[in-house]
Simulated scan of single mutants.
Amino acid sequence: MTGPLRVLISADMEGIAGIVHPTETNPERYDYERGRRLMTAEVNAAIAGVLDAEPDAAVRVADAHGSFRNLLPEELDRRARLVRGKPRPMGMLGGLGLPTFSDAGGSDDASGSGEEGGVVLFVGYHARAGAGPAVLAHTMSDTVLDVRINGRSLGEIGLNAAVAGHHGAPAVLLSGDDAACAELNALVPAALTVPVKFALGQAAAETIHPEEARENLRAGAAVAVARRAQVPPFTLTGPLQVEVDIYSPTTVDLAVLVPGVSRAPGARTVTFTAEDMPQAYSLIQLLVQLGTIKPA
């Protein structure tokens, strides 16, 4: 018996309509509360679109910005489950691969595609560092400047799409600025993208109205889920040679204490070999967390 479609919505904040400045994404700044309301509303639009196409879908939402505690639980569509808080397995894809809901039936993994498998949607995503003009572009937090896997530079979009792809789940949709949309389409040409603003610089954009963004996102999510069989998972076959450019020399010093991590020529780059994308992703997450440790 075929169970319901499993859907993971990974929600970031920099790519939400109307948001262009760090004050709108930082919990310690005055504009943050408005930013998180805008973020929650866009996620609700994506949930509604998924369920328009697949009323019985089992939907999880991974809060994937900063602290992973941005979405307002009491305002989130109650038909979805929320994964929030950190650190956690799978990082921005928290919930991928967890047992499905107790009342949802089906198998206990998120692998596969089509009727029996899972799909991933990226809401509010930003482009990688160096992709400009792009709104609030960066690679991973303010710690990691660049990640190259087998020589290919990847930001959060590529890394998360590859982890999902390892589990057989295609990234069928992305919303964000035009640079973020182009980044996913370069990796997954068949994916549907919903541009909600058009970058003029790192902290400037021409943005559509938030209500229009939600309408477009709801419609796009429904189409993306309905045509999921046409979107192949983005996969990277191991072993993977990983290079990570790190902002702080102190973080580099800490990173090379991790078994298997070596310092490359130059002040900022460390390297390691991973068996597959989940292993690479876990170690990259660790390097990001090491960046929060200040010199003694």
Rank of each mutant, 00 (worst) to 15 (best):
H138I: 11
T139V: 14
T139R: 05
T139K: 07
M140Y: 14
M140H: 13
S141W: 14
D142C: 10
D142M: 12
T143S: 12
V144P: 02
L145Y: 07
L145N: 10
D146R: 06
D146N: 07
D146C: 04
V147F: 08
R148I: 10
I149T: 13
I149E: 13
N150T: 11
G151S: 06
R152S: 15
R152H: 15
S153F: 11
L154A: 00
L154V: 01
G155I: 08
G155T: 08
G155S: 11
E156C: 11
E156I: 12
E156N: 08
I157A: 04
G158Y: 08
G158Q: 11
L159F: 04
L159H: 04
L159D: 09
L159A: 03
N160L: 11
N160I: 12
A161S: 15
A161D: 09
A162E: 15
V163A: 08
A164V: 06
H166W: 15
H166D: 10
H167K: 09
G168S: 06
G168K: 03
A169R: 08
A169E: 08
A169S: 13
P170A: 08
L173M: 14
L173T: 04
L173W: 01
L173A: 07
L174Q: 01
L174H: 02
G176C: 01
G176M: 02
G176F: 00
G176H: 00
D177C: 06
D177V: 04
D178G: 04
A179L: 06
A180Y: 03
A180P: 05
A182W: 10
A182S: 14
A182L: 10
A182E: 14
E183H: 12
E183S: 10
E183P: 15
L184G: 03
L184D: 04
L184E: 09
L184P: 09
L184K: 06
A186G: 14
L187Y: 07
L187N: 01
L187Q: 03
L187K: 02
P189Y: 03
P189M: 08
P189D: 04
A190M: 10
A190T: 12
T193V: 02
T193R: 00
T193H: 00
V196K: 02
V196M: 06
V196G: 01
K197M: 06
A199H: 13
L200F: 02
G201F: 03
A203N: 14
A203R: 15
A203F: 11
A203P: 05
A204P: 02
A204C: 06
A204F: 00
A205V: 10
A205D: 03
A205Y: 05
E206N: 13
E206T: 14
E206G: 12
T207I: 01
I208Q: 01
I208H: 00
H209A: 15
P210S: 00
P210C: 00
P210F: 02
P210K: 01
